[in-house]
Nucleic acid binder design. Structure first.
Lengths: 147, 147
DNA sequence: AAAACACTTTACGTTAACGTAAAGGTAAAT
DNA sequence: ATTTACCTTTACGTTAACGTAAAGTGTTTT
């Protein structure tokens, strides 16, 4: 092995640990299985280089993984996530493509905006539920104190 | 049939159409299949009454369906959605249960808050991408105008 | 009376996103 | 030298959330 493997072999690794990671480094950091990471590579979402037979993940892969998991938390499919995070790197060169790109951006923005509205509605509804709940709680405690 | 089925049989239906719906009414309104609605009933998320062999959905069912679909847009599983919308009706009677209920509420709130943060990060990143993109676009048009 | 229509149940099929062995390579520690 | 540790590929299994017939029931239109 050559990257993080033991608990005591970390000292002289710090200089380049900021840019290279084993599959286990990332799996531990983000609390996913190695299977998941390999699956994401298979889907073209991560592109680690190979050193011998092993995968070496770059800082860019790590950032992408973070974006993937964020997208998952928001309920996007991996296909949608690919579309989104590819926009971070893509940046087409032609004017026509660029304009089409801006349209896609706008659609994603609208999608996210809808989710944001959904969340805010849910949050305010939970506020209402909580208010009713706390009211009943104090009522019950008062009733108990009265008897 | 007795509820919405033809295009011309609507006139004398309006008085009680606000509180009763066929499966097709809801499917059309929310753009889901009847299969989906039956599946949600099967999962205990909707509880239509039966009139003869047919399902009759109440206003409460309709509201629940709206909540279900909102939950889905936010990436919640049906199990999570059940937990959430059950909180709208549940409201336990015991003090201990009520306190536990408030804890669950708090967890849901934290979950939603995380999603909200995720969305806002993504939105601001898309802002940045768009800014770069628009900059390049004007640059390219300037370059084209110069030659 | 027959055809068309809307609904029903039952049941097998499908897709995404992994889980879970199984079988093997290579390097470090014993 | 062999055990241990970590990685690899290959491949079948699993779950959620429906899709998709197939076959039947009851009304309503023709």
């Amino acid at each position: 092995m050559f990257l993080s493997q033991g608990a005591h072999a970390c000292a002289d690794r710090k200089d380049f640990m900021a840019s290279e990671y084993t599959i286990r480094d990332l799996a531990s950091e983000f609390e996913v299985t190695t299977r998941t990471i390999r699956f994401y590579e298979d889907q073209g979402l991560l592109m680690p280089e190979r050193r011998g037979q092993h995968r070496i993940f770059s800082l860019r892969d790590r950032i992408r993984l973070r974006l993937i998991l964020r997208g998952k938390r928001l309920g996007f499919s991996l296909a949608e996530i690919r579309e989104i995070i590819d926009m971070y790197d893509e940046q087409p060169g032609e004017v026509g493509q660029l304009e089409h790109f801006l349209e896609k951006l706008e659609m994603r923005r609208a999608d996210l905006q809808e989710k944001l509205n959904d969340i805010e509605m849910t949050l305010s509804e939970l506020d209402a539920v909580e208010a009713v709940c706390r009211q009943r709680l104090t009522d019950m405690k008062k009733g108990k104190a009265a008897e």
